[in-house]
Design a protein around this nucleic acid. Structure first.
Lengths: 216, 216
DNA sequence: CCCTCTTGTGACGATTTCGTCAGTTCTGGA
DNA sequence: TCCAGAACTGACGAAATCGTCACAAGAGGG
């Protein structure tokens, strides 16, 4: 049970696994989810035979790749919001950062887009965090909505389709769009209009410092 | 140019094409988008060789299948909202009907879900209609939002993720959820709260009469 | 009825993809 | 240093998928 210190052997295994996952993420970003296993292993610079040391099928690799991308993004969000207590602020910062991610990390963004609405029910990434924040806001009276889960649905969909929009309209200002939608969502959740605007325009920490944690 | 009356030959061709498209839709609904062409033709009860009489690749068939599903749904929406003039009412009815669709036409619903956020930029189905309604509402002052396109993004995402939610929670009341989200969206668009509630609870016409137009 | 054109059909060779396996390389402890 | 076990590797036979093609069946005009 107790996870011992990672041996050199463990690290070797983890490296090739990570290489495969990274390759799979680039393939997902390109929509090439029907690529051959050989293509994946070559892109990962890994022997064909190694594949089955780590995954028993292509689907399993792709699932792991999505999960990994979500976890990396989730870690960035946790880092960003570590010292915040107001659910509205946590939610706003997370959403605004995620919106900015579509341009700054196009690969991660496309993984999200190509995975689709199913991400909203994933236990990884931004979805569980947003759900947590919205429920906390409802519980503490910070948000006034008829149904927290429906509020979450609106937010999750907005995050996804915002990515689609930014992908379709390359000239649109991503930060402005993300902040505006954040403001709209906060108002939808019952936050007073002026407060919603203020929260969604607060300065964000330096993104270049935060985002290296995300995938290429 | 002028489309002549459909001959018996035309109808024969259209029938096998429709069979292929219908089969593809069931496959998309099941997420089996990497099925073999032979599987598709067998499901459609059509000879393998016929496939290439209609489509030059699997991707082309799947694109046509999604487009067909969207068009069928769009036709239902047009029929439903034919006599309405208020953009808020048109939008509300369309959204509420689409929400109810996820349970009543699970196959169409899953086609939408598995196609993903890209549907928001499609020229077929509910997306262009919702965009039209929102822009009309903004133009006429019915809606007050900072950016019509961002408002559309929120609505499109909500429609998608509502489907995902209904799919994940089978016990949830789909009509109640769809109506509640419609109300929330109308308020987000600047419609006064009491009016938003009233519009989103108006009786809908008999669904059983309308929905046969959609796919199985 | 016959001829022509359109559409449907399944079998076939070519190609791609799969998953395994015997052998190699690397690691860690004795 | 040596050995046992873990991880990596590419080649290979089996299986699948592909797209074509020669022919059959149906439609329509004369």
């Amino acid at each position: 049970m107790a996870d011992a210190a990672p041996t050199r052997l463990d690290r070797r295994k983890a490296r090739t696994r990570a290489a495969l996952i990274h390759a799979a993420q680039t393939f997902i970003a390109d929509g090439r989810t029907n690529a051959a296993i050989l293509d994946l292993t070559q892109a990962a610079d890994v022997g064909m035979g190694s594949f089955y040391n780590h995954f028993s099928s292509k689907d399993e690799l792709f699932r792991a790749a999505v999960e990994d991308a979500l976890d990396r993004h989730g870690a960035v969000l946790d880092e960003l919001t570590r010292d915040m207590t107001d659910p509205a602020e946590v939610f706003a910062c997370s959403f605004r950062l995620t919106g900015r991610l579509h341009r700054r990390r196009p690969q991660l963004s496309k993984v999200l887009l190509n995975t689709g609405p199913a991400i909203a029910t994933s236990a990884h990434g931004i979805a569980p965090r947003a759900r947590r924040d919205i429920h906390a806001g409802v519980r503490t009276g910070r948000f006034t909505v008829a149904d927290a889960e429906l509020a979450f649905v609106i937010a999750a969909g907005a995050a996804l389709c915002l990515g689609q929009l930014l992908h379709t309209e390359p000239d649109r200002d991503d930060a402005q769009a993300a902040d505006q939608i954040t403001e709209d969502l906060l108002r939808t959740f019952g936050v007073p209009a002026d407060e919603a605007r203020e929260i969604s325009r607060r300065p964000l920490p330096d993104l270049d410092r935060l985002l290296p944690g995300a995938i290429a």
